[in-house]
Write a protein that binds this DNA or RNA. Structure first.
Length: 818
DNA sequence: GCGGGCTTGTTACC
DNA sequence: ACCGGTAACAAGCCCGC
């Protein structure tokens, strides 16, 4: 039998002594399939320099051990010429019957006197299989083999593969999904009950609940009780036959909660296509896996991959959906509902229940739409790194970079480096090195500016100077020499071999693919290509950080420190040359320079840019960011020097670029943020301060007159750790404590909202920090908002025009005195 | 008990 | 624990007076 199918999920199982991989997917005809295949299980031994390799291999072949009811033994040991960390070596490939045996065998052979090291013993079987057989997740494959008839798997087709290969044609694949969301009577897992469960995709909309009420909306279906609710939910998934089930924060909430309640009712969560239970993977970051149906937790992907390009100040479903799909959650007072459920022994008013159901449904609808939006990103990233979707969608950048590397080492004949052991991780974490250069700006208002920046600075340095843990060498010959590197408090120079190594080479490919894609995208836009371009760019950018990440297989603090040293060298060099040309350098951070054109024309500036690019080595390239009409740089709060990482620029097209100011900081109240934003805009548009000054004075007047609504005075600060772990009890910690007393949900990661209320004059800020609902209109601490919010947000801006703090509040003081 | 230096904590920039 | 260093700044803590 022959089919064309797309691999969506993977797992492995044992039959007899041998391990097999199951690939779960869809055929071209839309049938659900399971392809069973296997590959060799092996790891590598690197012998000591003077070991007799033949004798060594012979010794290894004889290793066997009875363990846990089976015999772990070496079935084959071959001598191979390989590369390891770019050096040619002779290594022994040690085959075992079952991947489980690796852990037993490796410990025995590790103690042999001939053994220098063991490698690839930490590659899991599915990853091994994907590499060995060149299987690409989410890409169509042709497979032929024998069909199994008497299977109990919940699939339409089951094949034991004989031949499997990537298809030439790659038609579009649209997965069948089911988004879901649960509502519970308590937020803590282990307490309370599940009240309702909703499911949705672009057609289906359904809410299951055992809370009955009159005239329910058509999407609502009533069940008897919580047990039936869980069973019906199971049935819904079984009948709908989705490829993925999709949640938001479902790894940490919905599924663990479901598990607790299912256990309570003695219901099996046997959702797997092999009828297995949901597998709850413990660990620092728990996750939940269903065999054959990929459980996607969009929160994880947003948090790891997308968050830093979002403008949203939180990654709650509401904020993320608002920004990405322009829709929001229904507004329901969850705290009130939870409270009422507790106090009235589970009785809610009908109107409230109806609303609660629709709220529940909307969450699933948003999750479904968010999936549609993010799917190109998830899919493209998965395809590039080569790991199964389940893993790739949960991985942080370090892991993705690493997977991209290890899935591409075969062609370099490279043995994969080990993951570091915990002692090693401890050592690595202490290492410190110098990073980027930041230019010390002179405070002031500047006109006619140009901003240049290096395109992908660190990736271009890595490829141009072949920087890798494996190219670092002692000798000067045939090597790139670094500028002065600052590492562990010492100044050094390092050398990197010029012979192209695998990581810089793979990085080069990412960058080149992206270049091509960008040209394609210019001709014709598509969300898939755009998503691929984003994945390529961000993976490339994460490579430098990967080198410095303590958990990396290819860790090298020397490499990381060398990259930043090159960065410092070139940005300073370009700044010097710009000054010589006649530009006035105003500011610069890492890879950018902000300059006054002086009397240089825009055209001449661009010519100069081109000339610089001819001189820059390798793939390093300086590009135009934009021309700006005006820009403002301010002093630090303490002292007269200019503040770094804090400026505002007005582009020729009228758009603003504001960085670092309180306007963009979420831990300042909206009154200050908005006021500062308006002040910056007025000043940069006019080039004068008068209008902005009177605007500030108007706001101060309103504040003094207690006319500012509490809502605008809310300060938001994230609780970064558990309440009792704080040494310094700041305002947000006190408010978090208060929330806990009131039974409101607070934990590490919660956003704490508070208002500084009227209180004793000399008291600590935290003593006046109250929940917004606890503060009546006008009952805010005027002095606090004046001295700690409004004035600090604008005083340094006006100082540029010689306006002092006293002048800002002059007239108002009198007002206060009366 | 007061003030200033230091530390802790959060958020931003690139 | 899930990429790095650089930087600004608020507020509490702590010690010397």
């Amino acid at each position: 039998m022959h089919i064309k199918f797309i691999p969506l999920d993977f797992d492995s199982f044992d039959r007899g002594e041998k391990a097999f991989v199951r690939i779960w997917g869809r055929t071209l005809e839309g049938k659900r399939c399971c392809v069973i295949d296997s590959c060799d299980s092996y790891f590598w031994l690197i012998p000591k320099e003077h070991a007799n390799i033949e004798k060594y291999a012979e010794k290894v072949r004889k290793v066997r051990l009875e363990h846990a009811g089976r015999t772990a033994r070496v079935i084959k040991a071959e001598i191979h010429k390989k590369n390891f960390r770019d050096r040619e070596i002779t290594a022994i490939k040690v085959y075992v019957e079952n991947p489980k045996d690796i852990i037993i065998i490796k410990d025995i052979v590790k103690s042999f006197p001939e053994t220098e090291d063991k490698k690839e013993q930490d590659i899991n079987y599915v990853t091994r299989y994907l590499i060995e057989k060149d299987i690409k997740p989410l890409m169509w494959h042709d497979v032929s083999g024998g069909e199994t008839k008497h299977s109990d798997l919940d699939v339409d087709v089951e094949i034991w593969a004989e031949k499997i290969s990537l298809s030439k044609e790659q038609p579009e694949f649209k997965p069948k999904i089911l988004a879901f969301d649960i509502e519970t009577s308590e937020l803590e897992i282990g307490k309370g009950q599940i009240l309702m469960i909703s499911v949705a995709d672009d057609k289906t909309k359904k809410v299951l609940t055992w809370k009955h009420f009159k005239n329910p909306p058509e999407e609502v279906e009533f069940v008897k009780n919580e047990a039936e609710l869980i069973i019906k939910f199971k049935e819904a998934i079984r009948n709908y036959r989705p490829d993925f089930i999709v949640g938001y924060f479902s790894d940490a909430f919905d599924l663990p909660y479901l598990r607790m309640r299912a256990e309570k009712h003695d219901i099996k969560l046997d959702l797997g296509l092999d009828w297995s239970n949901i597998n709850f993977i413990r660990g620092m970051i728990p996750s939940s896996k269903i065999t054959g149906i990929v459980h996607l937790d969009l929160y994880k992907f947003v948090n790891n991959i997308i968050a830093y390009i979002l403008k949203s100040e939180t990654i709650s479903l509401n904020d993320v959906a608002k920004e990405l799909i322009g829709e929001e959650k229904l507004k329901v007072d969850l705290n009130k509902i939870t409270k009422e459920l507790k106090e009235s022994k589970g009785q809610l008013e009908e109107a409230e229940l109806r609303k609660f159901c629709l709220y529940n449904l909307q969450d699933s609808v948003l999750t479904s739409k968010l999936f549609d939006k993010l799917w190109p990103n998830i899919a493209e990233m998965t395809k590039i790194v080569g790991e199964p979707l389940y893993n790739a969608s949960r991985s942080a950048y370090s892991q993705l970079v690493e997977n991209y590397i290890i899935h591409n080492l075969k062609e370099f004949n490279e043995i994969i480096e080990n993951r570091p052991i915990s002692d090693e991780i401890g050592n690595r974490r202490e290492g410190r090195y110098s990073g980027a250069f930041v230019f010390q700006p002179q405070p002031g208002l500047y006109e006619k500016l140009v901003v240049f920046d290096f395109r992908s600075l660190y990736p271009s340095i890595i490829t141009s100077f072949n920087i890798s843990p494996t190219t670092l060498q002692k000798e000067k010959t045939n090597a790139f020499e670094t500028p002065e590197v600052e590492l562990a408090g010492k100044k050094k120079v390092y050398y990197f071999n010029k012979k192209k190594s695998f990581i810089p080479e793979l990085l080069d490919r990412l960058l080149n693919q992206r270049k091509k894609l960008k040209d394609e995208l210019k001709k014709k836009y598509s969300p898939e290509l755009d998503a691929r371009s984003y994945a390529l760019k961000t993976l490339a950018n994460a490579t430098y950080g990967y080198y410095a990440f303590f958990g990396a297989r290819y860790y090298s603090i020397e490499a990381a420190a060398s990259i930043t040293a090159f960065g410092r060298y070139y940005i300073k060099k370009v700044m010097d040359e710009a000054e010589k040309k006649g530009f006035k350098v105003i500011y610069g951070d890492t890879d950018s320079l902000v300059m006054m054109l002086n009397n240089i024309s825009e055209k001449e500036a661009l010519n100069w840019l081109e000339k610089k690019n001819d001189e820059l080595p390798g793939t390093m390239e300086l590009e135009l960011e934009n021309f700006f009409k005006r820009g403002i740089f301010v002093t630090k709060r303490t002292g007269e020097t200019g503040a770094k990482k804090k400026y505002a620029l007005l582009a020729d097209d009228g758009s603003m670029k504001i960085r670092g100011f309180e306007t963009v900081r979420r831990d300042w109240c909206n009154l200050s943020r908005n006021l500062q934003d308006e002040v910056l805009r007025m000043i940069l548009k006019d080039g004068k301060h008068e209008k902005a000054l009177s605007h500030v004075q108007k706001i101060i007047k309103e504040l003094i007159a207690k006319k500012v609504p509490i809502e605008k005075l809310i300060i938001r600060t994230q609780l970064k750790k558990a309440i009792n772990e704080y040494e310094n009890i700041g305002p947000h910690v006190v408010v978090a404590q208060r929330m806990q007393e009131l039974g409101l949900p607070v934990k590490a990661g919660s956003m704490i909202e508070f208002v500084i209320a009227k209180g004793e004059k000399k008291s600590l800020v935290r003593e006046k920090a109250k929940l917004p609902e606890e503060v009546k209109e006008g009952q805010y601490d005027l002095d606090y908002y004046l001295d700690h919010q409004i004035i600090p947000a604008v005083e340094n801006i006006f100082l540029v025009f010689g306006i002092s703090k006293e002048q800002l509040i002059q007239k108002q003081k009198n007002l206060m005195d009366f």
